[in-house]
Write a protein that binds this DNA or RNA. Structure first.
Length: 724
RNA sequence: GGGCGGUUAGCUCAGCCGGUCAGAGCACCUGCCUUACAAGCAGGGGGUCGCAGGUUCGAGUCCUGCACCGCCCACCA
């Protein structure tokens, strides 16, 4: 008794178990097992730094389910790993370079990539360390990284295969372009921000008349690239101008007045300028009317020679000059305040510029159709259910996915262009000559793939695909995906598409979308904002179990988690309560004897009767509570209602077990005159009840339960670890 | 322009199919260092469950409308 401290000190206990669990590889899955399977692949954290509380919530939720399933006897796999996170990681390293006045271009591609790899090692190791400290029961022998050779082969295979099927193509289209990152980005990487801008009304003289057309625009500088002015064909006001030309001010080019639905008679003046090279809608209109595309801005957002006198100016400076010049020529009618959704780069907040660019795209419609059907058929289920609708909405309104990025960190696009014949070679093996003309004058595309391209393959690439591995056979489709809402479209939807296309089955049977962890001010925690809390810090302060339990009990659906340390303090107290309850149990064993008492697994919820055959009232009561609790927790976990399971065990443990049951046993203990030869049933039941309570608590608080169970088992002559 | 979520004790939130659901934790008040635990024990105060209607024998719990707060999606210049 003396050797057990009155106050529970998790930092003495937790790291020891964390290490032991890893060293003994007790969470390794068995691909040759015939037991029922439960598999889950981790949403691979980005190697951009360390894990934040959002990860800890996610990992806690995954770990609870995984441990629960494992304790049910299932052959359980939790596959860990990390994501190279293309643009995000590249930016981290670029920022580091900037601090020492270096630029990636000055460094060169190879040297730069080496630096990113170095960083990846650092970040990846830190992430692994954090997860181990969290007690994540991963199978580390199956750890993966999206740039691993195997996974890269999967990426290559998928790219080539989709290309051969005509589902990947290359072309010059309007893409979202970040002038700072100097790369194309997908629609999803553009975040729209309500911004107070201005709507400018500009006069375009109509040739052959003394009249003007007045166009309204929020981006006046793009007029330098106008190649038409559009009015709605049914707009009576402008019928007189049909077939005429307009004079583009400042540039003094004559451009046609076209008739197109693009022009909404109810908006502005009903006249819209058409800039095919710098606006997605105008691009399409330009195609409909065979308009030239004049690029007036380069990849850095600086005006090109095509912008005439404005060449060399930054786009915003050009806007000011254009406005000033229009004003001077009395062509600017007016400007009015205008609320608009300005697109910014998700990574750097720079205003995104729609720009004409040659990029690679995935034709998503056929893939999306399968992904929609699979959910309609119930092959994959969303929890909470309402995400199903969101999923459908998004899936049915997809544009083709721009997958090429002008970056250095990522999977290089497996396409080679021939200088001789100009044709493209896309191949599984690096070619040495053009597949079309046979010449060796080929060079690989310098670009890399969108990081989500490889993430989309994660559920099967991590299991060995394209090889037909045993793991793949056993663990795919995975049982469950637990992830955040923020990557539902980026990731979940695309995994659905790729899984169905290449595996012929859904990547997971269920998707549980978890809450968002916010800080005390309800601000979103994010890597880019830098307001992240290192889980290692609170873990040290309150104990991993307490933080895990806090996250679990706050995980109720429908609301985000406003994490506060008050709660962690409260559940640290809970851990301490458990610790001290154990001290009482151990004390009882000392005073009442401690023979082997662990019951067989099948009657764990049945109390041992007294010598006269009757079961003590307190035992009957407690064991009935216990079995009800077990049912309740299984139901709650089965529905991912972590908070209900947590509340149930919390109140059972503190209220029923400690406040009542232990108090009653305390009286019985006092009534024992001297240590009996064998432990009376009254105390055997105490041990058994405590054992079961620890088991029920274990998925949420693995460390303290493992430690106490171990001590309990030692005293009872048992030697099986709880977590096995 | 669509869509979603929230509004319950001072604070943060639970309340799944309508009937011991008016609750928990923290905070607060009173009394206790009772040999498992003061990170504890015993007890206590505190809410007309956003507003207005409706369905029902009965509604935080279902329906309608409204008001705030927050979020997501969107090629209206």
């Amino acid at each position: 008794m003396a050797e057990i401290a009155k106050v529970y000190n998790p930092s003495e206990i937790e790291p020891r178990w964390a290490q032991e669990w890893v060293e003994k590889q007790i969470y390794a899955a068995d691909a040759s097992s015939h037991r029922p399977m439960f598999s889950i692949v981790i949403p691979p954290p980005n190697v951009t730094g360390s894990l934040h509380m959002g990860h800890m919530l996610e990992h806690t939720q995954i770990d609870i389910i995984v441990r629960w399933k494992r304790m049910q006897g299932m052959n359980t796999l939790w596959l860990p790993g990390t994501d190279h996170a293309g643009i995000a990681t590249q930016m981290v390293v670029e920022r580091q370079l900037a601090e020492i006045q270096l630029d990636r271009r000055a460094l060169g591609r190879e040297a730069f990539e080496k630096r990113v790899w170095d960083w990846k090692e650092k970040s990846g190791n830190l992430i692994k360390k954090q997860m181990i400290r969290l007690g994540a029961s991963c199978d580390w022998s199956r750890e993966r990284f999206t740039l691993d050779p195997g996974l890269s082969r999967a990426v290559r295979e998928v790219f080539v295969s989709l290309y051969e099927d005509g589902l990947i193509y290359r072309g010059k289209y309007i893409v979202n372009w970040c002038p700072r990152c100097q790369t194309a980005i997908s629609d999803l990487e553009v975040v729209h921000e309500e911004t107070q801008g201005s709507l400018y009304y500009i006069r375009y003289p109509v040739i052959g008349t003394k009249e003007f057309l007045i166009v309204a625009t929020t981006r006046p500088e793009t007029m330098l690239g106008d190649t038409a002015v559009a009015v709605n064909p049914d707009d009576e006001r402008y019928k007189k101008f049909h077939g005429r030309l307009a004079r583009l001010p400042l540039m003094n080019r004559d451009i046609p007045i076209i008739l197109d639905e693009l022009a909404d008679p109810t908006f502005g003046t009903g006249v819209v300028k058409v800039t095919p090279a710098h606006d997605a809608n105008d691009f399409l209109a330009g195609q409909r009317h065979n308009l030239p595309q004049i690029e007036i801005m380069d990849e850095t957002g600086v005006m090109t020679q095509n912008a005439g006198p404005y060449a060399g100016l930054d786009r915003f400076e050009a806007r000011r000059r254009v406005l000033a010049d229009l004003e001077a020529q009395q062509l600017l009618v007016k400007s009015e305040p205008y609320q608009m959704a300005l697109g910014r780069c998700q990574r750097c907040r720079t205003v995104v510029e729609p720009r004409l660019s040659t990029q690679w795209f995935v034709k998503v419609a056929p893939l999306a159709a399968k992904a929609i059907a699979a959910v309609e058929q119930g092959r994959t289920r969303f929890v909470p259910e309402n995400y199903t609708k969101i999923y459908f909405d998004w899936m049915t309104n997809l544009h083709d996915w721009c997958i090429s990025r002008q970056l250095w960190w990522g999977h290089r696009i497996p396409a080679w262009y021939c200088d001789s014949c100009g044709k493209t070679t896309v191949a599984r093996q690096d070619p040495t000559q053009c597949a079309h003309c046979g010449k060796e004058t080929i060079a690989q595309d310098p670009d890399v793939l969108d990081t989500w391209f490889s993430s989309a393959l994660w559920p099967f690439s991590t299991l060995g695909w394209p090889d037909q591995t045993r793991d793949l056979k056993v663990f795919y489709p995975t049982s469950l995906m637990i992830t955040g809402f923020d990557i539902l479209f980026f990731w979940v939807a695309r995994m659905m598409m790729m899984g169905l296309e290449f595996m012929g089955d859904v990547p997971f049977r269920e998707v549980y979308i978890h809450q968002l962890v916010r800080d005390a001010e309800k601000q979103k925690m994010s890597k880019t904002k830098g307001n992240v809390i290192d889980p290692l810090v609170v873990t040290e302060k309150y104990g991993t179990d307490a933080v895990r339990f806090t996250l679990a009990i706050m995980s109720s659906p429908g609301t985000d988690i406003a994490l506060s340390e008050d709660r962690m303090e409260g559940y640290r107290a809970f851990a301490n309560k458990i610790w001290n309850a154990a001290r009482f149990v151990f004390l009882s064993m000392e005073k009442a004897g401690a023979p082997p008492w662990i019951p067989p697994a099948d009657n764990r919820f049945v109390p041992v009767p007294e010598a006269n055959g009757a079961v003590l009232l307190e035992d009957r009561w407690l064991f009935s509570r216990l079995s009800r609790l077990a049912q309740e927790m299984a139901r709650a976990w089965g529905a991912y209602r972590y908070h209900e399971a947590a509340h149930a065990i919390y109140h059972f443990f503190w209220g029923d077990l400690c406040d009542w049951y232990l108090e009653i046993k305390k009286l019985r203990l006092e009534a024992i005159p001297q240590k009996p030869a064998t432990m009376p049933p009254a105390f055997e039941n105490l041990c058994r009840a405590f054992d079961v309570a620890l088991r029920l608590l274990h998925p949420m608080m693995p460390f303290i339960t493992e430690e106490l169970w171990q001590r309990l088992a030692d005293r009872g002559g048992q030697s099986i670890a709880l977590s096995e």
